[in-house]
Amino acid sequence: MTEVHHIQVPLGYLPLLVLIPAAVAAVAVPWLRSRFRKQVVPGSVPDWSIPPLDDGRGGLGTSLIHRWDVRCKIMTMLAYSFAVASLRHLSAAAAAVLISLAVLLAAKVSFHKVVLRVLALAGFLGMLLIVMPLTVPANPGDTLLVFGSLDWLTVNVRGIVLAATIGAKAMAVALLMEPLLATAPLPVTLHGLSRLGIPEMAGQMVLLSYRYLHVFSHEARRMTVGMKARGFEKKTSLDTLRALGNFLGMIFVRSFERTERVFDAMQARGYKGRFPEPGQLQIRMPDILLTGVWIAVGTALVWFDWMKG
């Protein structure tokens, strides 16, 4: 395997192999996205809805992942994610996707939110899947597909495999995000992080900005409705850009004014640089067991990947 293999494919296969799948994806992804996003405001007003992070069970879910100690869960899943992201072979990455799917079933998280996460990946991964086969340099041993007489259109099979591997790895990690984040209330997750050595202030900032995200998105929605009521329509024009520039400026003015009031209100309630802890954490035997099993699975995956060269 020292030279580049060329495979002639009749021109008629081009739509079958490339154009039709691309067109299907281009139609299906926006359609699924609009179906799975709960459209709060109908019509062309932008959807400002921000998904909730936890599953609303208040940390009382009964699945294996729900009951896992939050510190063990964070450490294990993050370390495992890095291990998955370092895989180099498609078969190992595909195995990681299967493992993530199994975890998903075990954690009983919202299918709806998982689909949204996967759809969010579609843009970046679709771009890789289109660009990489065409631009990856032809190394010795590669197989190139040439479509009929179109010399400039050579598809490198190694590029397809590479893009698919990246896609599988991204998918495997993304599928774990719901089990990681939704199975405990956000304050508990952040408390776990601070017990793992992340500065407490970082967790507080996440909590505050997560809270005010919803406040400002409501505000932005109200402002958009007002703009539409005054006849504003988005176009590719300088006027649109000016209107949107003012819109952003207004969001910032309001937010900076709000920070002062928020901070005053926090101080009035006795804020002294920390929030109350959301409860005691305790590591028990099953927690350690699950962590051990998971790390063993991750190690096996990396070893399998490594054995393949």
Partner: peptide, 24 residues
């Protein structure tokens, strides 16, 4: 350090601003 909570609140405004789609 007193101002860090305020930075967090402003961050959410930037986050919302980055959700604005500009027609092109």
């Amino acid at each position: 350090s007193r101002d860090l909570p305020k930075v967090a609140v402003v961050t959410s405004a930037f986050f919302v601003a980055s959700l604005v789609h500009i027609p092109f």
